[in-house]
Design a protein around this nucleic acid. Sequence first.
DNA 1: GCCGTTTTCGGCCCGACTGTTTTCAGTCG
Length: 598
Amino acid sequence: MTNAEVSRSLRELALYLEMDGVPFKPQAYERAAYAIASLDRPVSTLYEEGGATAMLGIPGVGKGIANRIVELVREGKCKDLERYRSDVPVDIASLTELEGLGPKRVMTLWKKLGIRSIGDLERAIEQGRLRHLPGFGSGTESNLRESIRAWRQHAGRWPIGEVLRLARVLEQRLRGAASVESASVAGSLRRLSTTVGDLDYLVVTSKPRSVMELFAGMPEVERVYAKGSTKTMVRLEQGIDADLRVVPKESFGAALQYFTGSKAHNVALRRIAISKGLKLSEYGLFRGDKSVGGRTEEELYRALGLEFIPPELREDEGEIEAASEKRLPRLIEPALLRGDLQVHTKWTDGRGSIEDMALAARELGLEYIAITDHTRDLAMTGGLDEERLLKQMDLIRETDKNIKGIRLLSGAEVNIRRDGTLDIEDEVLARLDVVGAAVHSHFSLSREESTRRLVRAMENPHVDIIFHPSARRLGGRQPIDIDLDAVFDAALRTGTVMEIDAQPERLDLDPRHVREAVRRGVMMVISSDAHDARELRFTEEYGIGVARRGWAEAGHILNTLPLHKLLERLKDGRGARPSPDRRRKKRRRRQDRERREA
DNA sequence: GCCGTTTTCGGCCCGACTGTTTTCAGTCG
């Protein structure tokens, strides 16, 4: 069983327990399910290596749940879950995905009407059978009808790239409204999560009614679910839901913190509050009835004895411990990026000329960019062969001379073939300033094959960077299956850099992998993969967020360096040989070591 | 069922909204 399957089973158990009205266990199972889903390694491997004891190392897993996991891994099923499924044979996981339907009502629907699936529910609603059930009514019936429609249209979450700009537009509109004192987007969007479930807004205002009217009446609003004095919920035309809350001025920080989440982070903060004899809610931090913080987030974290934790880190994955020990990372900032090492032009599938891209990059304040068009194998894009690549290199040099204020590097996005070889001759690669290599085909090779393929490409002495290492497309293509450990080993051994590709449908490396790279000391770059001038902004809009969620500091990201330093750190060309100075130092260190050992 | 710098027992995050019923359960975030 994969981690996802184990996690799903535990989550299903949690739902059944909740349906039964069992106290506390559901949250315990939920927490364990979450922990399993976020594991880096297969839980089956952990079990093979360390048996049931190894399960206890997973946060939220104790003896009871460890046994369930072992059962799932060994048998592919577990007795408790099977029993629940035969007692109450309903698709509880899907049904509870519907807005307005939880485990208790699922139980009622099953008992009274024999409803087992969303399809059953839909038929019962059409026949008008729900409105006669205890606790249900015609209002509930029509709400559930709408929920099913929405669920069918968009099950799941949105890639951040599909909603970020819309979210910012609404935020600006709220900020600009006459009676609004402050306004902010919160939720997973503020944490710059890779995917977003809905949009959450908070405002401080003296005229709640009029702000609610404004929000519910926006042209983007398709439907109003609820409109109260403190909360309004709407669905936007695009299909995503948006919530607006009005909060008291003195609670804005506490509310912003609370609604930014994540849930796990909030739960952990509340525990800390309790341990200090305080009570934390979205209204503030209280000792008895007295507020001791909540006007701003900074004040709130300080009152809890913590450094301010940037939203991107709020996942309860070590940030709270780090904040209490004053060792949070100094996260990278957009202004620190000096260059962009993946830029496309009209020479292949881009829409701007070399000059267009250079001027736009200079406008953004960048000091250098590398032109990295596709190569031969990507015939679809008009991929360049050796001859055209050399020709382009000449033009890049010439353009570089003519445009002041930005340096142009010659490069390429070379294709990695199925066997790990490249589609451009080494002699030509050697003449480029920057060589990126990337996977564009054969996405479903075995883990061994995919890993070997990437490692072989990294072993090429001319390959500086692996572009979009997992080749995933959010909401589309799954990542290729690689042994990340082995790939990072190879990166360290060969001095190959990993890219954080900021195209919103890629975001690749994933933040989780960035964090691992940071831990291992693997160097990265953040690039836009821009195909026209406007896309150069992707690095600051999305790429920085990915890096920050991965705990990256400027020192982990090579394109924060000035050009000459950057080139020193790349594999060949001007960076291939350590400078004489570095060689001397290295020799001295070796001699010191030998003397000590002698 | 999990967890421990007050605890190996006794806690476990907290409040708003809806629909329904008329004082509250269920759901959500």
